[in-house]
Amino acid sequence: MFRTALLRSARSATCQAVRKSSPIVRPASTGLFTKSQIAPSAFQAVRCYSAGGGLDEATVTGRIADLLKNFDKITPTSHFANDLGLDSLDTVEVVMAIEEEFSIEIPDKEADAIHSGIEQICEIWSHARELTF
């Protein structure tokens, strides 16, 4: 406890010293960088939590394939009604499951137009792009 307090006070003292001296010694434009190199502890609390990029297509395809495995006999290319004999309620259920997986909400108009896994992947993909860029 005491040691950390000591360290902290010492660190703040050096920080202040640097801050005081920096306008004289260094040009103003490099002030921020040099300060962060000397006393990195002051900047460690600030972190960026945003993800680097959006979802790429392979991830989306993989996750949908995993999800569709939970339903019987669905493959990504099969047509829900024609190949699988799903009725309209089943289709709604599949679409809803996918909405939940990706934490998105597909508007009713577009959801009614989804009839196969591939269409769904395209749909998610376009949404993912809208969301992340």
Binding site: S88, L89, V92, E93, M96, D108, A111, D112
Partner: peptide, 13 residues
């Protein structure tokens, strides 16, 4: 039909 499906979707939500 769309209305029915929308109702079903609402129920699931």
């Amino acid at each position: 039909q769309k209305e029915v499906l929308a109702l079903y979707r609402k129920c699931l939500r």
